[in-house]
């Protein structure tokens, strides 16, 4: 038998004791940990989406791309308080 064949037969003879029960408990614990993590990630994503939704609708009037919403807002303010420039002119 050559050196290589002898090496292969030693390799075939490699034996390690398997503690199946202990490893199964570890696997179960890791599976439980993973599903807990997955649940946390999903909950985190939902929370971020909710915050984003609330933020978006609270600043939406200022985000108008054509400026109409902002103009409406300024007009509303002016109507409610009078023209700020004219107010200044008359108060001085």
């Amino acid at each position: 038998m050559g050196e290589y064949e002898a090496y292969l037969s030693r390799l075939k003879g490699v034996k390690a004791e398997l503690d199946g029960g202990r490893l199964y408990s570890r696997i179960e614990a890791r599976i439980a940990g993973q599903s807990r993590r997955r649940k946390l990630v999903i909950e985190g994503m939902l929370a971020v989406m909710l915050i984003g939704f609330v933020l978006y609708f609270s600043i939406r009037p200022y985000l108008s791309s054509n400026g109409e919403a902002m103009a409406d807002y300024v007009l509303q303010q002016e109507t409610a308080n009078g023209d700020p420039i004219m107010n200044y002119v008359f108060s001085n």
């Binding site: 570890r26 696997i27 599976i31």
Partner: peptide
């Protein structure tokens, strides 16, 4: 463990 986590 990795193998069986993947199997699961």
């Amino acid at each position: 463990q990795e193998v069986f986590l993947n199997v699961h």
